[in-house]
Nucleic acid binder design. Structure first.
Length: 640
RNA sequence: GCUGGAGUAGCUCAGUGGUAGAGCACCUCCUUGGUAAGGAGGAGGUCGCGGGUUCAAUCCCCGCCUCCAGCUCCA
């Protein structure tokens, strides 16, 4: 065995070092700055701590704070730091798991006493003390028996059975001072990297997510390399709180949620304006793209749901009722209804593809604990459609749907170029044979490739009847939300025995595509409220312009201006109360009205309005016609 | 559904074993004021619902409902 090995660095250069050289030593050999900045290394694709000796020829990348993977390492280490502090303060605590997440980290504990929010500052303070000590993380590798013995010795009961589930025969621990934890690693070199941590919440959880299992307490937190990044993140959390659609929705009088209808939103007149504008946007597209709109019943016989497969796969989420000794279900999806429409008469290949859109209300009995404003409801409507086509039309139909999505998203304020695309594949419990699933998954993947769209796979997340493409938008705070979805389904046409007569005079089975562009209107409106912080694009704003009189002398003029705007199709109000204009502007801002039209004696004289934007920008006086031209353009073009 | 927390005026929140308060919003009046809060007065509450303890419960106890933070699930 040669005493030296070759390491290939990201720039392609080779470096010869003695066998057993650590990542940290290589970094030091490259430069003093890198030695200090090295968080971890990537050896042949595996992330390892800087203290790891390299035993053979390998590729090596040194991770610094700039790398995405480095942040995960930091947060994972922060989770350990949290465990150290909790063990110090609450002896007798047993450890669950403590991973890094997209936003930070958490650790699950089984503590002798219940933890509360008040305990967090104490724990955080202890974490910072330990961080300041700069305790190194040392890796210890044991075999299975050794690992169990060690866990037993320190009293970590929960993790002992887990040892048998680890596929590798080498079980690793990381020690820092008196603390040790069984963990795959890697970690930052020492705890001094972890100064910028913040604990955010404590909540319930279960050992390995099993609701019948051991109850645990989860402490969540976040960590960053720099104080500035941490501050920015906390600021974003604050901002998200300010944008909470439940609060803004109430302030703008868009909708309400009431105990009489848990999870069933009440739409107020102003909320319905947004709802209807979005519907209008979609209907325009439907017309252009050769869709017909249908409306199928809300309540349908049990038999139908047994045939469609919902009874077997979606029953827990459905509402049932008994009428005249017959069982019915309230529909959670539109697909079976449209299948009945399709199958109601013979179909010819000449009329394919049959495209049916439907906006019916859908009820889904979601678990009470999952309800959340408009983002998770039990009553919603989707901009739903089902397309029945010949297999060979699949690609072009999907292409058309993607094009529609690309035309719709900019109007609601999302850049289609920034949409994240995922392909969700067959779940464990699914309808149909594996071969059609493969066919359907391939069809979706092909369609995406044909469109030149990059996508990642979301394994096991498909609908029970078929795989789906998910379109995720990124909002103003960098959060992502799934909106659009396209699903290919070979099963339901089979179950409903749907067919069309081909050119050859024979019966053929159509393929069914389920698709939604916006997703559900409820959820989308919730997302849009938060994305725009309630400041909707003008075309969507419940009130588009409000006329503010300066004194009561302009009251009549203000009302006349409002009526002139209304006649031109602008949603306008007039505020002719006896308040000062500053106070009226303040109210208009709180209502998020995009245009405030101030009318005083001068404007009344000249037949003008003084235009102020929601942003505070003052456009000065202009003729009513000029203002109308401006706002009509924004409305007609749906300027976002 | 599960774990933990909460529910007092439209909103944000004080408060007490002897049936309740503030600010904002609302209504009236005064003020006629030029781009984020002019002033005064008034009205408004079954203190989430049901039971219990007590001479007396908004307050203490039990059950339920709803909401919030998570778990899980998802449009």
């Amino acid at each position: 065995m040669s005493a030296s090995i070759h390491l290939q660095l990201p720039d392609g250069s080779l470096r010869q070092v003695p066998r057993g050289t650590t990542v940290a030593e290589v970094a030091a050999g490259i430069g003093k700055g890198l030695a200090k900045a090295a968080v971890a290394g990537v050896v042949d694709g595996n992330v390892v701590e800087t203290a790891r000796p390299i035993q053979g020829d390998a590729s090596l990348r040194i991770l610094t704070a700039k790398d995405k993977e480095a942040l995960d390492v930091l947060r994972h280490s922060a989770a350990h730091l949290l465990a150290m502090a909790v063990l110090d303060l609450f002896p007798g605590t047993d450890l669950g798991f403590g991973p890094a997440t997209d936003e930070g980290f958490y650790y699950d504990f089984k503590t002798p006493q219940t933890l509360t929010e008040e305990d967090l500052p104490k724990i955080e303070a202890r974490m910072k003390e330990i961080a300041a000590e700069g305790r190194p993380y040392a890796r210890v590798a044991l075999d299975r028996a050794g690992a169990k013995e060690r866990l037993q010795g320190i009293g970590y009961e929960l993790k002992i059975p887990h040892v048998d589930e680890i596929p590798e025969d080498e079980i690793t621990f990381y020690d820092s001072g008196a603390f040790t934890d069984m963990c795959e690693g890697p970690h930052v070199p020492d705890t001094s990297w972890l100064a910028n941590v913040k604990l955010l919440s404590v909540s319930g959880a279960y050992w390995r997510g099993d609701a019948s299992g051991v109850p645990m307490q989860r402490i969540r937190g976040t960590a960053f390399f720099t104080a500035k990044d941490l501050e920015q993140h906390l600021h974003r959390l604050e901002e998200a709180k300010k944008r909470d659609h439940r609060r803004i929705g109430r302030e703008m009088d868009l909708f309400s949620l009431q105990p009489e209808g848990p999870g069933f939103p009440f739409w107020h007149p102003r909320g319905m304006v947004v709802y209807n504008e979005l519907t209008k946007l979609i209907r325009e597209q439907l017309e252009r793209r050769g869709y017909g709109e249908v409306r199928t019943p809300i309540v349908l016989s049990d038999e139908l749901w047994k045939r469609s497969g919902h009874y077997d796969h979606f029953k827990d989420n459905m509402y049932f009722l008994e009428v005249d000794e017959r069982s019915f279900a309230i529909k959670p999806m539109n697909c079976p209804g449209t299948c009945l429409v399709y199958g109601h008469r013979p179909r010819s290949y000449r009329e394919l593809p049959v495209r049916m859109a439907e906006f019916s209300p859908l009820h889904r009995n979601e678990l009470s604990g999952t309800l959340h404003g408009l983002l998770r409801v039990r009553l919603m409507a989707q901009d739903d459609a089902h397309v029945y086509c010949a297999p060979e039309d699949l690609q072009s139909e999907i292409a058309d749907m993607i094009e529609m999505l690309q035309q719709v998203y900019p109007a609601i304020g999302f850049d289609p170029a920034e949409v994240i695309v995922k392909l969700a594949t067959k779940p464990e419990k699914a309808l149909g044979d594996p071969a059609s699933w493969e066919k359907a998954e391939a069809a979706l993947a092909d369609a995406l490739r044909a469109q030149g769209m990059a996508f990642e796979v979301n394994p096991g997340e498909g609908a029970f009847y078929g795989p789906k493409i998910e379109f995720h938008v990124t909002d103003a705070l960098g959060r992502t939300w799934q909106c659009g979805t396209i699903q290919v389904d070979f099963s339901m046409p089979e179950r409903f025995n749907l067919s069309y007569v081909g050119q050859d005079g024979q019966h053929h089975r159509p393929v069914m595509i389920h698709r939604a562009i916006l997703g559900s209107f409820e959820r989308l409106i919730g997302i849009l409220i938060e994305h725009h912080a309630g400041r909707f694009p003008v075309w969507l704003a419940p009130v588009q312009a409000t006329v503010l009189s300066i004194t009561e002398a302009q009251g009549e003029y203000a009302v006349a201006v409002r009526d002139r705007l209304r006649a031109a199709g602008v949603r306008a109000e007039a505020d002719i109360r006896g308040d000062k204009v500053g106070s009226k502007i303040r109210d208009a801002i709180l209502e998020r009205v995009p245009y405030q039209l101030v009318v005083g004696g001068r404007e009344m004289e000249s037949g003008q309005v003084a235009v102020r934007l929601l942003s505070g920008e003052d456009l000065g006086p202009m003729a009513i016609e000029d203002f109308l031209a401006r706002i009509r353009h924004e409305i007609d073009e749906r300027v976002a």
